[in-house]
C-alpha cells in the first residue's frame, strides 16, 4: 500500500503532464508540448493551425452533415503543432488524432473536445516518420457524416478514404439513375460507333488479305 502511494506521488507530476484538462466547456487529452516522441532529436519548429468545425462547413459537400473547414494538413516531422479548434455548432465536436506513437500518446490518441460554441487550443509534438494520421470527431455518426480529415507528417504515406471532397468513400452510397436526352444520344452514338467498328475491322481484314 505504501509502495503504491509512493509510486502515485512519483507519478503525479507525470499524470499532470499527461496533458488532461477538462471543464464545462472543453476537454483536452494527451496534450504534449514537451515530450519528444521516439526518433525526434529536438523540436523541429512550431506551427499553429486553426481548425473550424460545424454543420456549415459541410455545405460544400452534398450528403455530408458535419465537417471541418479543411480536410488535410501536411506538417513537417517533429513539429510542435498547436491546434486552435473552433466549434461553430451548439453541440459537442472533437478534433481527435489517432495512430500516434503509444509511448508518448496513450492509446495513440490526442483529443480536443469543445462542448458547444467556443474554442480550445492544445499542442502536440509530431512523430518523425512519414505517415498519415486519422483526424475525426468520434461522436456517434459524426465521422460517418463528414467530420473526418487527415494529418500528414512529411507528406504522409497514403490518403484516407471518405474525406469530404477529397477522397472517395470505401463503401459508397448508390443513387437513383435517370436517363436524359444526352444519355440517349450518347447511347445512339455508341451504337453507331460499334457498327462503324465492324465495318472498319472488315476493311482492315480485306486490305490485309488483298496484300
Amino acid at each position: 500500500m505504501r509502495l503504491l502511494l509512493f509510486l502515485l506521488t512519483l507519478l503525479s507530476p507525470v499524470l499532470a503532464l499527461a496533458g488532461h484538462r477538462m471543464d464545462m466547456d472543453s476537454m483536452v487529452m494527451n496534450e504534449n508540448p514537451v515530450n519528444l516522441p521516439e526518433g525526434c532529436p529536438k523540436i523541429a519548429g512550431d506551427k499553429t493551425i486553426t481548425v473550424k468545425a460545424g454543420r456549415k462547413f459541410a455545405g460544400n459537400f452534398p450528403g455530408a452533415v458535419f465537417a471541418y473547414d479543411q480536410q488535410s494538413w501536411d506538417i513537417p516531422p517533429c513539429t510542435r503543432l498547436t491546434i486552435r479548434f473552433i466549434n461553430k455548432d451548439h453541440i459537442r465536436h472533437q478534433f481527435m488524432v489517432h495512430g500516434l506513437p503509444e509511448k508518448t500518446y496513450p492509446q495513440g490518441m490526442f483529443t480536443i473536445e469543445v462542448s458547444g460554441p467556443g474554442e480550445e487550443s492544445a499542442s502536440l509534438i509530431l512523430p518523425p516518420s512519414k505517415k498519415t494520421y486519422l483526424v475525426h470527431c468520434d461522436i456517434a455518426q459524426h465521422t460517418e457524416h463528414g467530420m473526418k480529415a487527415q494529418l500528414k507528417v512529411a507528406g504522409g504515406d497514403r490518403d484516407l478514404a471518405s474525406l469530404p471532397g477529397l477522397t472517395r468513400p470505401a463503401r459508397p452510397d448508390t443513387y437513383p439513375t435517370r436517363w436524359t436526352v444526352s444519355s440517349v444520344f450518347l447511347l445512339l452514338l455508341a451504337l453507331a460507333g460499334g457498327g462503324l467498328l465492324v465495318w472498319l475491322l472488315r476493311w482492315l481484314w480485306q486490305s490485309m488479305i488483298s496484300e
Binding site: I91, T143, E144
Partner: peptide, 18 residues
C-alpha cells in the same frame, strides 16, 4: 441530452457503428 444512432452504417466499410 444528445441523440445517438446505434448500429448505423459507415462509408468506411461493412460494419455497424457504434
Amino acid at each position: 441530452l444528445e441523440v445517438a444512432e446505434l448500429n448505423g452504417s459507415s462509408p468506411d466499410g461493412d460494419f455497424l457503428i457504434p
